[in-house]
């Protein structure tokens, strides 16, 4: 599977106004093809999370354009963006952010259920399959609060995959895990990327994590400092 997945053109993001304005992104441009696994590397405060939020349609750029699957995401209204996000983008956060009142299976089903307005049997079966893929079949009926940190992150990955998105945005997905769990999570992401062709943009400042991606985009002080492919 190939072709353009995401295109970012001259994106700026400014918080505040006048003397207190903070220019976080200063003209960021790049493109990602379908199935790519990209590491977004940068120090804290470099603009990684802001960029991910804009790409995930959770935040709007001050100027510039973002297009995904040929659709302009900078001018769409909130309802359109919400639906687009639900269908085409998955998220994995540093802190799992599971819904605490729901079981692992229900958490995985959430993106499908919130779209359909109910928990369909088909979605339940897919959620169970995804939990099996991340090795958590036996924890399907456990509440989020009953899972370990690594397990929670694997449930979060399964949730991100639920609607078969073309792109998963992962913001420091291993930042809250020990080395062993971090490597297991990366193994999982690599496998998903390889088997399903899902694209990944993984924000990290961990070189070992970045090394497992096929491409590295370095962001520094709000601009792209480097963008190179690696021999994974």
């Amino acid at each position: 599977m190939s072709g353009l997945l995401l295109e970012v053109r001259e994106v700026h993001k400014v918080y505040g106004e006048g003397a207190t304005a903070t220019h976080v992104l200063k003209g960021v441009s790049f493109a990602i093809d379908r199935g790519e696994m990209v590491a977004l590397i940068g120090a804290s405060g470099s603009g990684k999370s802001t960029l991910l939020n804009i790409l995930g349609t959770l935040s709007r750029p001050t100027s510039g354009e973002v297009a995904m699957l040929g659709e302009d995401l900078t001018r769409a209204d909130d309802v359109t963006l919400t639906e687009f996000r639900n269908r085409h983008i998955g998220f994995v956060f540093q802190f799992h952010h599971l819904l605490p009142d729901f079981t692992a299976l229900e958490n995985v089903m959430f993106p499908s259920a919130v779209r359909a307005g109910r928990e369909r049997a088909q979605a339940r079966a897919r959620a169970a399959t995804l939990l099996a893929q991340v090795g958590l079949s036996e924890r399907a009926d456990f509440r989020a609060t009953q899972l370990s940190g690594g397990q929670k992150q694997r449930v979060a990955i399964a949730r991100a995959l639920m609607n078969e998105p073309e792109l998963i945005l992962a913001d420091e997905p291993t930042g809250n895990l020990d080395r062993q769990n971090a490597m297991q999570v990366m193994d999982l992401l690599e496998r998903i990327n390889r088997e399903s062709g899902t694209g990944f943009l993984i924000s990290t400042h961990d070189e070992q994590i970045a090394a497992r991606c096929s491409r590295r985009i370095v962001i520094s002080d709000g601009v792209i400092a480097a963008d190179r492919h690696s021999d994974r």
Binding site: T82, R85, R87, F91, L98, L99, F110, V114, R159, N163
Partner: peptide, 9 residues
Amino acid sequence: IMRAFGATR
């Protein structure tokens, strides 16, 4: 999180 995963306002 619900908003991120597609819950409308």
